[in-house]
Computed example of a mutant assay.
Amino acid sequence: MNRPGEWSIQQLARITGTTSRTLRHYGSLGLLEPSRIGANGYRFYDQAALARLQRILLLRELGLGLAAIAADYGRAHAAGLAPDSPEVREITRRHYEWVAAGWQGRRPGADEFAGLAQMYVADPRFAANYDRHGEGTASFVSDAMLAFALDL
């Protein structure tokens, strides 16, 4: 049963014009976690999750999605660019802006961005997302993010 100010996965999908499958996909990527899961296994989302989803959908609509950023990292890695090269720093800046857009109204600091970089190689789900663009891309992304974090 819905509590005031929350929606089931089906309701949220309907009011935002997306699908419950897309919402589950965002959850598996760690982008949109449900605010609670009912005893029946149903996912429920609150106002904060709705705002986060709206930012994700806006970024996707603008073409600034993580998939495009991951592909750019993969191309840079395949081209042999250094993680701290100007070209890769620009990709990492876009990545940082993408992360910041979903960071609950504030920008991640150096330690937070570096922690995210380490998670990309430590968590096999994140590593697989990047390594599908070429073996070693997750480590390359992490190195690029660590270099970028030094200037935050």
Rank of each mutant, 00 (worst) to 15 (best):
S8M: 08
G27H: 15
R75G: 09
L23Q: 02
A122G: 00
T18L: 05
L58F: 13
Y45P: 03
T137Y: 07
D111F: 00
W7P: 01
A127G: 12
A48L: 06
E112P: 09
A149E: 06
R21G: 13
E97M: 02
S8P: 08
G109Y: 10
D143W: 06
G80V: 07
F113I: 02
A67N: 02
L59H: 09
A70W: 12
L58G: 14
D46E: 08
T137A: 01
Y26L: 09
F126T: 11
D131F: 05
F44W: 09
V141S: 01
G80H: 04
A48D: 13
A67G: 04
R94S: 08
L66S: 02
D46R: 08
G134E: 13
R94M: 03
T16E: 11
H95C: 10
Y130M: 05
A128N: 11
Y73M: 14
T18R: 03
V88A: 10
L32R: 10
A76R: 06
A68R: 00
S85L: 09
I56R: 13
G5N: 13
R125Q: 12
M1D: 07
A13P: 10
A147W: 00
F113V: 05
L31W: 15
A49F: 07
I56P: 05
G115M: 04
E112F: 03
E97P: 07
Q10P: 03
P124S: 14
A122H: 05
P34T: 13
R94I: 01
G5T: 10
R93D: 12
A78F: 00
D111N: 08
A39S: 12
D123I: 13
P86Q: 09
I15D: 02
A39T: 14
D111E: 14
Y73T: 12
P83E: 03
A110Y: 12
P83V: 06
R43Y: 15
N129L: 09
A127N: 11
S85D: 15
W103L: 02
R107F: 13
V121L: 11
G30H: 11
A39H: 07
A138S: 11
H95T: 04
Q11W: 01
A138H: 00
R21Q: 14
R14M: 14
A117F: 03
L29Q: 14
G17W: 03
R75Q: 12
I69Q: 00
T92I: 02
H77V: 00
R21L: 13
G38K: 13
D84A: 10
R21E: 15
